[in-house]
Structures are given as C-alpha cells and as structure tokens.
C-alpha cells in the first residue's frame, strides 16, 4: 500500500468512526424526547385499588393528575339525616367508620373526572380545589358494605377564595372487611342538567 492509499484509509476510518459517534449521540438525544412524547400521549391514571378500567379523557395530564391523585383536602363525611327520617346509633357508627375509610382511600373514578372536566377549561371562572363527598348510605352486606356516595367538588376563584360547586355525581361501591373498594356504578345527579353550577351561598 502506498502512503497515499494509507492516508486515504486513515481518513476513511476517521470519517466512519466520527459518523458512528454522531449517529449514536443523535439517537441518544432523540430518545428521551420520544419517551416523553409517548408518556404524554398515554394519559392513564391506573390505580391498583380499583377494579375498573381508567380510560384517557380529554383532560390534560396535569389537570387529570391534579384532580385524580392525592390532592389535599379530599373528605368524605356522613350525610345529614334527611327530614322525617331517623338514623340508629349503629347506622351512624357504620357511616362514620366507612367515611373514614373512604377519606383514606380517596376514590376518584374517571367518570367523575370527566363530569367535572369543565373545571379545567382555561375560560372557567372557578378552579378545582378538592373533593368533598357526602356518604349517603353504608348498607351492611355479607363481608362488608354497599356504599352510596355523592361526590362534589370544591372550587376557588382567581383570588383563591372559596366557591361552592353545586354539580353532584352519584357513585356506588362495595367495601369489604379487608378495606378493598370495588366500583359498582355511577351517574350524574338527576337534578343536574350537566351545566356548570357554582357560586357563593353567602354563608
């Protein structure tokens, strides 16, 4: 091999190595973007505590997770006794016990998220703050309770002041003695016309 050929071989080798390094580095730079893009597309909040599918909704990832996951202030309280009805001591104790468990479990089915999705619209006058649920019934069944819940949202205005949200979402679960919660069904409150209803009660 002449010295000229030797130089050509060396230059070719250098170009091959440089090209390889360039392509690898480009690939590795692109990889995280690809990963992020994939995770942004799959907006799935999968919670192993529930046995129902959690599907993507129209909400953004940020809004979805803010409403769905461990947002501070989730409460479940026994509903007041309706006029003309009575509640035994045992029933009241059951309600308080189940309310405490549900507050800890803080269930948020995706249907509820979709129902209150309007709170996440950029032009919404009220912002989501936390969930406030009323426990209507905890009916003892074999190995646990059948639970009826009215889920409501608390809101704030742009200044952070409290706003009441009057829309209601009805949910039913079974809760077994092991503390496992199973979703049964849900629906909008029959009095709701699905339009956003919010304001200040004056209290």
């Amino acid at each position: 091999m002449t010295s000229r050929n030797r130089i050509l071989v060396i230059i070719t080798g250098v170009l091959v190595v440089a090209g390889g390094i360039l392509s690898v580095s480009t690939f590795s730079m692109a990889a995280p973007r690809q990963k992020n893009a994939k995770s942004a597309d799959s907006v799935i909040i999968q919670d192993p505590r529930f046995n129902f599918p959690v599907a993507p909704t129209t909400m953004t990832t940020e809004a979805h997770s803010r409403m769905a996951l461990g947002f501070a202030g989730y409460t479940v309280e026994p509903a007041m006794v309706e006029p003309g009805k009575a509640r035994s001591v045992a029933e009241q104790q059951d309600l308080e016990k189940v309310a405490e468990i549900l507050t800890r479990l803080a269930p948020v089915p995706t249907q509820r998220l979709a129902y209150f999705d309007w709170l996440n619209r950029p032009d919404s006058a009220v912002r989501f703050k936390s969930w406030g649920c009323l426990l209507q019934e905890a009916k003892p069944i074999n190995g646990g309770w059948e639970v009826r819940l009215t889920a409501m949202a608390r809101g704030t205005d742009a200044q952070g002041q409290h706003i009441d949200i009057f829309n209601r979402f009805l949910e039913e679960y079974t809760l077994n003695d092991a503390g496992e919660l199973h979703f049964v069904r849900c629906s909008a409150h029959p009095d709701d016309n699905a339009k956003p209803r919010f304001g200040r009660t004056g209290l």
Partner: peptide
C-alpha cells in the same frame, strides 16, 4: 363550615379552613 344545608338544594360538603389568604 360543616353541616351545610341549603333549602331547595340539600346538603353541601364541609368547607376546608377558609380563607387561605
């Protein structure tokens, strides 16, 4: 505010401690 009741509507959930600001 707890045990909140609005005639014509029903019960509202308790508020958190407000105002926060």
């Amino acid at each position: 505010l707890t045990n909140r009741f609005l005639t014509g509507y029903g019960q509202l959930p308790s508020t958190s401690w407000i105002p926060q600001y």
